[in-house]
């Protein structure tokens, strides 16, 4: 994140040197967009925070672990699609799951749905592209994620 912040600061300064008026307009425009999206963003973050609490590590191990059998794949896809877990939490978590015996196959379904499908972020996406597009995109991504996860599950241990 830090490189982006530095880049933005430098670009803003350069832009300001070249054209004060344009830069002010740019910053104002960006901030307006931010303020407009803020209420939706906050409510999504609130819902995600609560969901994240309910989906504890123990719960994940129970549903994704060896005992869960084929059901583990279904749980992985469902949990992955609903939650948005930022990478810095998701990967250490995936590391823990791996150590407790969750297979790479199940993890690949979990990680791909987690990354490609965001049911909880649909309200934010819809603010920019409309609900229909957001829902269709997420549904297609779900199918895509299942294909990726499924393929990974089939070939991971053979190559």
């Amino acid at each position: 994140m830090i490189p982006i912040i530095i880049l933005t600061v430098i670009l803003t300064i350069v832009s300001f040197v070249f054209d004060k008026k344009k830069t002010k307009k740019a910053v104002k425009k960006g901030m307006m967009m931010f303020v407009k999206i803020l209420p939706t963003l906050l409510s999504v973050i609130i819902v995600v925070s609560v969901v994240l609490y309910l989906v504890s590590d123990e719960l994940l191990i129970e549903y994704l672990g060896k005992e869960a059998g084929l059901g583990a794949y279904v749980s992985a896809a469902v949990i992955g699609s609903i939650s948005i877990i930022p990478g810095f939490i998701a990967y250490p978590l995936a590391g823990i799951l791996l150590k407790t015996g969750v297979s790479f196959s199940v993890l690949s379904v979990f990680i791909t749905t987690l990354k490609m499908v965001g049911i909880l972020t649909i309200p934010i996406e819809a603010k920019f592209f409309g609900y229909r597009t957001a829902i269709i995109r997420n549904s297609l991504s779900f199918v895509g994620a299942i294909l990726v996860g499924g393929t990974m599950a089939l070939i991971y241990y053979y190559i």
Binding site: T12, S15, T23, A26, K28, G30, M33
Partner: peptide, 9 residues
Amino acid sequence: FILVGLFDV
């Protein structure tokens, strides 16, 4: 968002 604004102008 500031980057987006700069890009826009």
